[in-house]
Design a binder for these strands. Structure first.
Length: 572
RNA sequence: CGGGGCGUAGCGCAGCCCGGUAGCGCGCCUGCUUUGGGAGCAGGAUGUCGGAGGUUCAAAUCCUCUCGCCCCGACCA
């Protein structure tokens, strides 16, 4: 492909709208352009990358025995009402009416549609197991789209759904997808880690997220350095502290804490460590107000709280509710003397002695407060986020924390959707059985963006060979007949050897071509100039290392084959 | 939705506080020179100053409303 035939609008300066590396570089290198918030056009070069990622996904999904189909983007409300998600999904579900005033939505995921297909078309246990996948545009009306392709409202996703006769079969299907994902992300040239995850809105029994390790990641994961445990912090279990606390209980007393409302204010004012405080968070569940006690240096985990309460949606109570429940303004809530409110507490509160809590009076706290003697707790549970330094719940070491970008997610769904939608098959005895399901997603654009986050330098992108838009970037310097002729012969030879080449045939100065090539990030650049040709060589520049090899033009295909051998090995 | 910020030429920005002919750099067009890391000189084109309303002799600038976008928090591939 010649650049003169390609819309490739590279930008010299960083666009004002982008702050993240991948977003900035994808705009600058002419891969994407924004149409509206979270909605992008893929320009020709960007689409090539998307197609490369899709190609790898297809190969691995097919290898794992899944079959590709394609479901519609618009789906009727009826299906979503059957599973209850028409109400449950919230504003993220983009709804609209057709000309007959019938309700529709843009598919954010496709459990309903695929389960509907299954129940209509599959009858017998002989047809199972089945695994269907599609690579398709999804729409989720995200509260806050950001970082370009990292979190779009419209985005391309590979989603797959497995149907098995039983739990055991479903576990096999799940494992096959888990293995396929390992291969996919490895082939995309990513450093990643599979971690235990929460099941969120999709529901189901267990799941893993595939996290690309990057500082700009929105997720925090914890893992055991010495063991195998790895989990999203929102999921990671925290073991109850083992040691009992021998500290003697001192008598409780009130102290004045004028206008000190936050943990930080109170600890500074009383000159104590945050771990000496217990914070009292009041949550509205829709039915009641619940007080959640968390040690001052710990972070509340709302997912765990929701799970404990068995409530899908909770929110921190507003000032009015807080005042009603505690009789004090926000910032002075505490468990002592708190009436008519259910109190749940994190395990760490149980062993904490002589702590500081709000007094349920303006500008006062209690110090030397002790559980059982001074306040009661209805239930203790694991309610906080894991953090670095906590023991691994598998008892295989101490947890470390890192940031990650979620590029894939696999779920064991169980029979949640088959029950709600009556997706059944007949077993050998002619008895109706619920299909046991799994579902498996990969964000295609996000995978590409994550690859940029992990593979770039100050000059631009450094594409991993398997997903590079072009393998080789030909840079003829000047317009002499010798250079043009040599470039043309190289272009053909490189193609014949199986490489995709981009030929910069613009009448630009060397510096412009070099900078654009570094920005676009093809793994190899071929620099053809009169200087080199005079002694019979051209230069092969390796983008990643900056290394330049002087090579006779006839030897270029072989040199490229050798250089790329290791990156291509993963293909087979 | 809450908090913060921004909308001025294709891109990056200044001008706004203190109202008075709309500017700079890059890119784009023409010509000459140059040609291995974002060239030089000369000439040129390009704006409903996000939109609507208001104040004023006069509004990019002040006021009100509105739309869009970005960043930080609750959602997720």
């Amino acid at each position: 492909m010649r650049t003169s035939q390609l819309l490739l609008p590279t930008l010299r300066e960083d666009p004002g709208e982008a702050e993240t590396v991948s977003h900035r570089l994808m705009l600058r290198s002419g891969l994407i352009r924004k149409v509206a918030a979270g909605i992008y056009t893929y320009l020709p070069l960007g689409l090539r990358i998307i197609r490369k990622v899709e190609h790898i996904i297809r190969e691995e999904m097919n290898r794992a025995g899944a079959q590709e189909l394609l479901m519609p983007i618009a789906s009727p409300a009826e299906l979503w009402k059957e599973t209850g998600r028409w109400n449950y999904y919230g504003k993220e579900l983009f709804r609209f009416k057709d000309r007959h005033e019938r309700d529709f939505c843009l598919g954010p995921t496709h459990e309903e549609v695929i389960t509907d297909l299954f129940r209509r078309e599959v009858r017998s246990y002989r047809q199972l197991p089945l695994n269907f996948y599609q690579i398709q545009t999804k729409f989720r009306d995200e509260i806050r789209p950001r970082f370009g392709l990292m979190r779009g409202r419209e985005f391309i996703m590979k989603d797959a759904y497995s149907f098995d006769r039983d739990e055991a079969g479903a576990r096999v299907s799940y494992q096959k997808m888990y293995d396929a994902y390992q291969r996919i992300f490895t082939r995309c040239g990513l450093r990643f880690r599979a971690v235990e995850a929460d099941t969120g809105l999709i529901g189901g029994t267990s799941s893993h997220e595939f996290m690309v390790l990057a500082d700009t990641g929105e997720e925090t994961i914890v893992y055991s350095e010495t063991g195998t445990y790895a989990a999203n912090v929102e999921r990671a279990e925290v073991l109850p502290p083992e040691e009992s606390n021998a500290e003697a209980r001192r008598p409780m007393r009130p102290v004045d804490t004028p206008n000190r409302r936050t943990i930080e204010d109170v600890t500074k004012f009383l000159k104590v460590d945050p771990s000496r405080l217990v914070k009292t968070l009041l949550y509205n569940t829709g039915k009641e107000t619940v007080a959640v006690l968390i040690r001052g240096d710990h972070e509340a985990n709302e997912i765990k709280i929701k799970r404990l309460l068995g409530i899908a949606d909770i929110e921190l109570a507003g000032p009015a509710t807080v005042e009603k429940a505690t009789g004090a303004p926000v910032g002075f809530a505490g468990p002592v003397g708190l009436k008519d409110v259910r109190i749940v507490a994190d395990h760490a509160v149980k062993t904490a002695r002589n702590v500081i809590v709000g007094a349920n009076r303006a500008d006062q706290h209690y110090v030397d407060v002790n559980w059982e003697r001074d306040f009661q707790v209805d239930q203790f549970a694991d309610l906080r986020n894991a953090r670095e330094g906590d023991p691994s719940p598998r008892k295989d070491g101490i947890l470390k924390a890192t940031k990650g970008i979620e590029v894939g997610h696999v779920f064991m769904l169980g029979t949640k959707y088959s029950e709600l939608m009556n997706a059944v098959y007949l077993d050998p005895n002619g008895k109706e059985c619920l299909a046991v399901m799994g579902c498996y997603g990969i964000g295609v654009g996000r995978t590409a963006a994550a690859a940029v986050e992990q593979n770039h330098d100050e000059k631009g992108i450094i594409w991993p060979f398997p997903i590079a838009p072009f393998h080789v970037h030909l840079l003829p310097l000047g317009q002499s007949a010798g250079v043009t002729g040599a470039t043309e012969r190289l272009y053909d030879a490189v193609h014949a050897a199986g490489f995709e080449a981009l030929w910069d045939d613009r009448d630009e100065r060397a510096g412009v071509k070099f900078n654009d090539a570094d920005l676009i990030g093809a793994p190899y650049q071929l620099i053809v100039g009169d200087k080199g040709l005079a002694d019979g060589t051209i230069e092969v520049k390796i983008r990643k290392t900056g290394e330049k090899l002087k090579v006779a033009p006839v030897d270029v295909p072989e040199t490229l084959s050798k250089l790329s051998a290791s990156s291509r090995a993963a293909d087979s």
